[in-house]
Every structure is written in structure tokens, then in C-alpha cells.
Design a protein around this nucleic acid. Structure first.
Length: 901
DNA sequence: CTCTCCCGCCACCCG
DNA sequence: CGGGTGGCGGGAGAG
């Protein structure tokens, strides 16, 4: 036996060695992988390796030589063909070898290696996706990516360090620890510095500040961006592109904004950045570029920035001559920055489809409302939290009641009015929105934002502080970008979608009819996505299936499938992944794919997702591409997602309802989208666009970064809504969907009034497994609640993330909380919805896995309770939330709700 | 092919 | 002036 093993190893190991430093820590990882592989395939070592690797997940770290049998199995199991494997090996080999030789000297064996190694092993073991393994085999580029490195870097420090504790960062130490050259650390640190997450204190020394001041920093950047008129510039550039590929620099500033104020940008925050003369080296620094890049997102209505536009703007500002090489260089830098920002879960990669084709772009998934919040708010201490929660819960409860009371009679206006009323009543209320974005005086989103900030603050002191150990900081962070919303890596935005949407929106009814869902009860979809991404997913039964026509439209609209995503950001273990997934989690997504543990880093998140999801589900939903399926599908089916939709809906809603109603519900973001200057954005907004069905609902989103609640109201229900223009769609039965987000936990809840009998058909394919997962954002921050009109179906079992417990539960309501989590642990068979493929709830994060059942009850109750309890919990962090939240919400709810009547 | 973006040379600039 | 920083762009992996 041994002999065999050795032989295999030898064969296998060699190639790896070449690639990696064999003995070196880094290499070690790879080697391990290889080893495993080797054992797997006794026959041809080389080929086997790759193959094995892919499948290894199953294998334990031990990976010792395994019996050949397994190999055979695996091979079969593996998607990879021998040929493919060989190719892989071969391709990897030569280059690797070369690199290897070089690297040997370069690499420093570091602990890091060990870590990496460990991680890889774990991944292998746990991991399902072949991809990971594959990657691991050889140190793929991804493994060495800045994003991954950044995640590791961030994992070292608490997102919200206690004020008392000072964390200093030694670049040398970090570099060694992470096993990379210091040069790479500079890239990370510079971007972090631009956001004030760190500050340089001395040579080679930085202080870690964490995310505490991130909202403030972003606000400042947003302000600066507005001053710089970046939005106009972006719009201008985009227009130009339509006309010409070439763009001229001169025009950009026509508006009169001063030439380079770049230096000022830096000033805003600190003295750190010395204003330098234009074009100075500093102006070109990654720090400044990073700030500008962020500003572009912040001023963008669509929150999507294409790299080419960003690069052009940067070039213009730098007053450099716009040659192609410059452009390329800028883009490279932007990728560097984007990788870091993605690791921070502030942005995620998407693709914008344009006439010219797909363009790489990034979407802001971080907090959005900070702009509206005051500094005061930032400082606000915990006390406020309860208030906010009440508001939110109250609103939710109200909705629920309404629904319950009359199945579709819910009037969104009333709700909105109520909210406004409240807001108005308190002049000082933080809830008021400052922004003029929409003219909405108050937005839930803003509330959420406030809430979130508070939470953040509190969190610093408490949980987070202690939690370094916690799952990756990022994921945990409340502040973390709502990103959770965006589960998937990429979205495609297509212009068309916009057009389509309007019509779609109006009519949910039509949809339901078409889908067949209508009859049954409504379909409950949930879709809430924060930034456009769909938050909710419905169980299969619940899944809303857009009528064929709609689908077609959607599909058409969407570009191709979203690529694999980009989303890796979340990656970092919990962070990225969590963030992304959770919110949106459209049921579909979740359904299709199960997430891997957030822990994994995924630089390659996108890939994973892809693989995770099957195309299958998507297919159902979307005509378009299977590949995206996961993303698309889920969103599509379950909920309306995307800004576009949202916008549409909003606009539609506004029209119908009148502003008042909408106001209450609409979040700032929503508004923004509607306006999009950017052509692309509007259309696409991700996967969500596709779903017209979503239109039916009015989506109330909390501000993006925040953990606000997202509420989906069915348009049909609202009387006003009836008037909706578009119309053909029959209103869905679902009155409203509330998606609480973030802070609470990520517990998505789906209540579907009636089970979608008809709908099921469509859905069935998707979910397959059944369980629809709503992915909670990694953190579990977001919870989605869907309330079905009349009859809620069964509550699904879901595991709640520790954090969210509160939200979850609307037991009484019949709501079923669905958790989706990064993991994808969803169970297909999960009980949800009684037999239906219920969405599975995952709570990967939750430290303590709760049993769905138990959780459910608890949560449910909790959910409605008054926030009072929340205050504590919130702070605590995710874990505690569950229990606490419960109480206060209800109280609040009732009060507010009353207004409706 | 295009998109990404790693890698590390070498210029800056600070202490 | 030495060394920390970090701009820069070649070139290769990934798709």
C-alpha cells in the first residue's frame, strides 16, 4: 500500500512542487491537496490529482492515501473529465514550475502558510465545491489574489475594536504573517487608509481603527463626490460612450466644477492626506484613487460604477494624457482597490451590459444611508435602538396585521403615512431624512440606517470588541454592507429591464394569473434585496413565477447570466460570503445553491456560487442563462430584485398610491435607481431586474448598508395600487413582505398566504432541493420576512442565525422564517411549508445552530415583540439578538399599525 | 480574445 | 543616503 501511495505522491507531488514551494508553508497547502489527489487516483497520478482535488472536499484533511476505489468514485462524481484534468495539470505545470523556481526564494515560510494550509484542508474537507479544491491544488491566482489577502488581513483585526484597545499594525509582521511581500500589504493598507480604517502612525506602523468611523467617512466622501459633480461626470462619460468609444477629457468638467480638487478629498477626513499639487505622485496614489472610486459609488444613483468610467474620470482628474496605457494602468489600480473594497463588503462585482457589451463594474453594497444620517446619529448610543426597532417592527406588524385582517386590503399609504407621521412628530428624529433624494421625507431605509449605526456603535463596545475571534469580522459587522443583500456575485443589468419593469410592476395580478399562482393564494415572494438584490426567496411553493411573458422580458433584459461572480468579496470567511448571500438570498439562489460555509474564503466566491447553484433552478425562472442561474433564478423567481425593479415599483407605486404612500416605504436607494443617470444600471440592476413579478410588491428597502428592514408590499393590495398602470398582472395574493434586515439577524422569513399551488410547478424545478434558501447575508444580518396574506403557510424551519433571532419569528403570523445563510446548508427537504420545498433556512453564522423548529417559535414570537428587548440584543450582536428582539417589536407594531386603519 | 491583476522593478521621498 | 513606499506596466492566468 505504502508503495503505491508513495508512487502516486511522487508523481503528483512533483508538479506541485514546481508550482509551489514544496516544503514551504504555502506550498504545503498545495501539496496537501495534491497528495490527496494522488491517493485518489492511483492510476495516473497526474490526472488524478487534479481530479481528486476537485472532489476532495469529501476527503478529510488527512488525505492520506486513500483507497483507489474512492478515486474511481470521485472521478465519476467529478465533473472533470480526465482530459480536462490533464489539461489542467499540464497547463499548470509548466508555468508553475517556473514560478516555483522563482518563488522558492521569494516565499517565506510563514505561519501563514500553516493557516492557509489549514484552511485549505478544511475547505477540502468541508467543501463541496470542486472548484475550491481545484484552486487549492495549485496556488491559483485567486489564492494569491489581493482580495483574498485582504480578507486575511481584515480577519486579523476586529471590525469594531473597542475604543480602549489600540491595535497597531506592523507591516512587516503582517506581511510575514500573511506570507506575502510587503508591497502587497501596502496596497491593502492604502485603500483601508483611504477609508480611515487604519491610519499610519509611523514607518511600517499603522493603527487599526476598524469600521467605527466608516459611516462618517463615507458620508464625507459622498459629500465630496457631490461637490465634485461626479455624478454628472459619470453621466457624461456614459453618454459619450454611447456615441464614441473615445472620450475626451476636456468635457468632463464642463459643469464648472473646479479642476482638481482631488486633494481636497483627502482633506475631508484628515490631514493625512496632504493636499498635493495636482498630478503629484500623491494624487495618483492608491489612497486617493480609492476615495474617488468610492465617491463615484456614493454619488451614483444606481450605485454601480463601471471601471472604464471610473478610470476615465480618474484620468481626467489627474490631467494625464488619456492614452490607452494610462487607461489600462488605471483599470489595474481600480481592480486592486475594488478587491479591497470587496473584501470590506462595500462593493461587489457586477457586469453592466451595454450596447457595447458587458462591462466590468462594481456595485455598492455597503451602507448607503449614511449620507442622510447625522453625525449625531452616529454617536447615538444604544438608547435609540429600541426606538428604531419599534418603528420598524411596528411597521412590520402593521403590515402583517393588515394582511391578515384582510387579505389584500393592506393599504400601503396608510402605513407610509403612519410612518411619516411619526417621523414628523419628532422633529429631531433621526429618522428624518435629510437627503433630498426623493423628496421622501422619511424612509424606512433611513431608519434602518440609523438603527444600524446605533447598533454599530453599541456593538463596538460590546460584542465586537470581544469578538475578534468571531467569524470573520467583516461578516459580522453590522455595518457590513448590506451586502448581504447581494448574494450573488454578479448581476447583470440590462437596460431593457427598466422598460419592462414598469409594466410588470403594476400588475402582480396578471402575473399571478399567468403563473397560476394567483389562484392559490398568492404567491409569496419575497424579494427584497437591498440594493437591488433580492432579499427574499420564496419557498418553492411560494416562489413566484413570473408569467412567461414576463420572464421572457426579464430574461431578455438581463444580460447574460451574471457571471460568476464577483462576489467573492464576502469571501472572507464569514464576511464576504455572508454578506453577500444573506440578504438577497433570494430564495432561488439559496435554493439552488447551498452555500459553503462562509468561512471559506472565497475569492472565487462567484465561482462557487455558480457551481453551487445549479443552473437548473435558474432555468426555470429565467430564460436567460443558466449559468447565472443561481443568481438570477433565485431573484427572479422569488422576488423582485434589483433596483430596477424597485425603482419601477416605486415609481409605479408612487404613481398609483401617491407619494405619500410610497414615501414611507421607499427607501432612498430606490429612488435613486429610478433616476439613474446611468443607462445601464437602471436596466439591469442585477438579477432582480428580471423579475417583473416583483413588481407587484412595493419593496421597501432599508438603506443599503443598513440592516434595515425591507418590506415588500403587494401592490395589488393597496387600493391605490389597484390603479396601477400597468396592469395586466393580477395582484398577488401576498399583501406584503417584510424583510427585516440586517442587524437583526439574518433570518429571512417567508410567509405565504396561500400556498402556491400552481406556482409550484414552476418553482419546482428551481429549488429542487427544495429548500429555498434565502441566503442570509453572511452575517445573518438580514432577515427577511414575508408575510402572506391570509394564510401563511407553514413556517419553515429555519435555523436562525444567532443574530437574528428576533426577526425571525413571526410565528403567530404564520410567517415562516427562512434562513439562508451562507452555507447553503439548506435542507432540501426542510419542512418548510409543509411539504413544499420549503426554503431552508440556514444560519451558518449563528454560533449556535438553532434548530429550526425551536427557533421558529421563538423567533416568531419575538419578532413581534417590542424592541425594548432589542436594544440589548442588538448591541450584543448577532447572537443575542434572537432572544431579545422579540419583545419590543410587537408593542410597537401595534401602535403604529393602528394608524392604518 | 478580453478581463483580471500578480509581480516586482525601480523611482520617490522621508527620516 | 538608506530604506520605506508605492507607481507602474509587463505579462500571464482565467474565462
Amino acid at each position: 500500500m505504502e508503495v503505491n501511495c508513495l508512487t502516486l505522491k511522487d508523481l503528483i507531488s512533483r508538479p506541485p512542487r514546481l508550482d509551489f514551494a514544496i516544503e514551504d508553508g504555502e506550498n504545503a497547502q498545495k501539496e496537501n491537496i495534491f497528495v490527496d489527489l494522488s491517493r485518489m487516483a492511483p492510476k495516473t497520478p497526474i490526472k488524478n490529482e487534479p481530479i481528486d482535488l476537485s472532489k476532495q472536499k469529501i476527503f478529510t484533511p488527512e488525505r492520506n492515501p486513500i483507497t483507489p476505489v474512492k478515486l474511481a468514485d470521485r472521478q465519476q462524481a467529478e465533473p472533470w473529465t480526465p482530459t480536462a484534468n490533464l489539461k489542467m495539470l499540464i497547463s499548470a505545470a509548466s508555468p508553475d514550475i517556473r514560478d516555483r523556481e522563482k518563488k522558492k526564494g521569494l516565499f517565506r515560510p510563514i505561519e501563514n502558510k500553516d493557516n492557509v494550509f489549514t484552511e485549505s484542508l478544511q475547505l477540502d474537507v468541508v467543501d463541496d465545491s470542486a472548484v475550491d479544491e481545484f484552486e487549492k491544488q495549485r496556488p491559483s491566482r485567486k489564492q494569491k489574489s489581493l482580495g483574498l489577502l485582504c480578507q486575511k488581513f481584515l480577519a486579523r483585526y476586529p471590525s469594531y475594536p473597542l475604543s480602549t484597545e489600540k491595535t497597531t499594525i506592523s507591516l512587516d509582521e503582517v506581511a510575514v504573517s500573511l506570507g506575502v511581500e510587503r508591497r502587497r500589504i501596502y496596497d491593502i493598507v492604502n485603500v483601508l487608509e483611504s477609508l480611515h480604517l487604519v491610519s499610519r502612525v509611523a514607518k511600517n506602523q499603522y493603527d487599526w481603527h476598524g469600521r467605527h468611523s466608516l459611516p462618517k467617512t463615507l458620508r464625507n466622501l459622498q459629500r465630496l463626490g457631490e461637490e465634485q459633480k461626479y455624478e454628472e461626470q459619470m453621466a457624461h462619460l456614459q453618454q459619450k460612450e454611447l456615441d464614441l468609444i473615445d472620450y475626451k477629457f476636456g468635457e468632463r468638467r464642463r459643469d464648472g466644477y473646479p479642476d482638481s480638487q482631488d486633494p481636497q478629498l483627502l482633506d475631508f477626513s484628515e490631514a493625512d492626506y496632504p493636499s498635493s499639487s495636482a498630478n503629484s505622485r500623491k494624487d495618483k496614489s492608491l489612497r486617493i484613487m480609492s476615495q474617488k472610486f468610492v465617491m463615484l459609488f456614493l454619488v451614483s444613483k444606481t450605485k454601480i460604477v463601471t471601471l472604464d468610467v471610473a478610470a476615465k474620470i480618474l484620468i481626467e482628474e489627474s490631467q494625464d494624457t488619456p492614452d490607452h496605457s494610462k487607461f489600462k494602468t488605471k483599470v489595474r489600480r481600480l481592480y486592486d482597490i475594488a478587491n479591497v473594497l470587496t473584501s470590506l463588503t462595500l462593493i461587489k462585482k457586477v457586469h453592466v451590459t451595454e450596447d457595447r457589451g458587458r462591462k466590468p463594474a462594481f456595485k455598492w453594497i455597503g451602507p448607503v444611508d449614511f449620507s442622510s444620517t447625522d453625525d449625531d446619529l452616529m454617536d447615538v448610543s444604544t438608547p435609540i435602538l429600541p426606538e428604531l426597532k419599534k418603528e420598524i417592527y411596528g411597521h412590520i406588524q402593521f403590515c402583517a396585521r393588515q394582511k391578515l385582517a384582510r387579505h389584500g386590503s393592506f393599504n400601503s399609504e396608510q402605513a407610509s403615512e403612519r410612518i411619516q407621521r411619526k417621523v414628523n412628530s419628532e422633529p429631531s428624529s433621526p429618522y428624518r431624512q435629510k437627503q433630498g433624494s426623493g423628496g421622501y421625507s422619511l424612509e424606512i431605509g433611513s431608519l434602518a440606517a440609523v438603527y444600524r449605526q446605533k447598533i454599530e456603535d453599541s456593538s463596538k463596545a460590546e460584542a465586537f470588541a470581544s469578538q475578534r475571534a468571531m467569524p470573520p469580522p467583516s461578516s459580522l459587522d453590522p455595518a457590513a454592507p448590506l451586502p448581504s443583500l447581494c448574494v450573488d456575485s454578479e448581476y447583470c443589468v440590462s437596460p431593457l429591464s427598466c422598460q419592462v419593469l414598469p409594466a410588470a410592476q403594476t400588475e402582480s395580478k396578471a402575473l399571478s394569473a399567468q403563473t397560476g399562482l394567483s389562484g392559490g393564494g398568492g404567491v409569496s415572494l419575497a424579494a427584497a434585496a437591498r440594493d437591488g438584490e433580492p432579499l427574499v426567496a420564496a419557498a418553492e411553493p411560494l416562489l413566484y413565477v413570473p408569467p412567461a411573458p414576463l420572464i421572457m422580458l426579464c430574461g431578455g433584459l438581463q444580460e447574460g447570466p451574471p457571471g460568476p461572480g464577483a462576489g467573492s468579496a464576502g469571501g472572507g470567511g464569514s464576511e464576504g460570503a455572508a454578506a453577500e448571500q444573506p440578504p438577497v438570498a433570494s430564495g432561488q439562489k439559496r435554493l439552488s445553491r447551498d452555500r459553503k460555509p462562509p468561512q471559506e474564503d472565497e475569492a472565487p466566491a462567484t465561482k462557487r456560487q455558480n457551481r453551487d447553484h445549479g443552473a437548473g433552478p435558474l432555468a426555470l425562472v429565467m430564460p436567460k442563462k443558466p449559468s447565472d442561474s443561481t443568481d438570477i433564478a433565485s431573484p427572479k423567481t422569488s422576488a423582485p430584485h434589483e433596483d430596477t425593479l424597485m425603482n419601477r415599483q416605486l415609481s409605479a407605486a408612487k404613481a398609483v398610491l401617491g407619494k405619500a404612500t410610497t414615501n414611507g416605504f421607499v427607501t432612498s436607494e430606490w429612488e435613486n435607481p429610478s433616476r439613474n443617470t446611468e443607462i445601464e444600471k437602471p436596466s439591469k440592476e442585477n438579477e432582480s431586474t428580471k423579475e417583473p413579478s416583483l413588481l407587484q410588491y412595493l419593496y421597501v428597502q432599508s438603506p443599503a448598508g443598513l440592516n434595515g428592514f425591507n418590506v415588500l408590499l403587494s401592490g395589488s393590495q393597496s387600493p391605490h395600487a389597484v390603479g396601477l398602470p400597468v396592469g395586466p398582472l393580477p395582484p398577488l395574493s401576498v399583501p406584503c413582505v417584510v424583510v427585516p434586515s440586517p442587524t437583526l439577524g439574518a433570518i429571512p422569513v417567508l410567509c405565504s398566504p396561500t400556498v402556491p399551488g400552481p406556482g409550484s410547478s414552476a418553482p419546482s424545478p428551481l429549488p429542487n432541493a427544495g429548500p429555498v434558501n434565502f441566503g442570509l447575508p453572511g452575517l445573518g444580518s438580514t432577515a427577511h420576512l414575508l408575510i402572506g396574506p391570509a394564510a401563511l403557510v407553514n413556517p419553515k424551519s429555519s435555523t436562525l442565525p444567532s443574530t437574528d433571532p428576533q426577526l425571525q419569528g413571526p410565528c403567530s403570523l404564520h410567517l415562516s422564517p427562512v434562513m439562508s445563510r451562507s452555507h447553503g446548508s439548506v435542507q432540501p427537504g426542510s419542512p418548510a411549508y409543509g411539504g413544499h420545498p420549503a426554503p431552508a433556512v440556514k444560519s451558518r453564522q449563528s454560533p449556535v445552530p438553532v434548530t429550526p423548529k425551536s427557533i421558529r417559535c421563538t423567533h416568531q414570537e419575538t419578532f413581534f415583540k417590542t424592541p425594548g428587548s432589542l436594544g440589548d440584543p442588538v448591541l450584543r450582536g448577532k447572537e443575542r439578538n434572537q432572544s431579545r428582539s422579540s419583545s419590543s417589536a410587537q408593542r410597537r407594531l401595534e401602535i403604529p399599525s393602528g394608524g392604518a386603519d
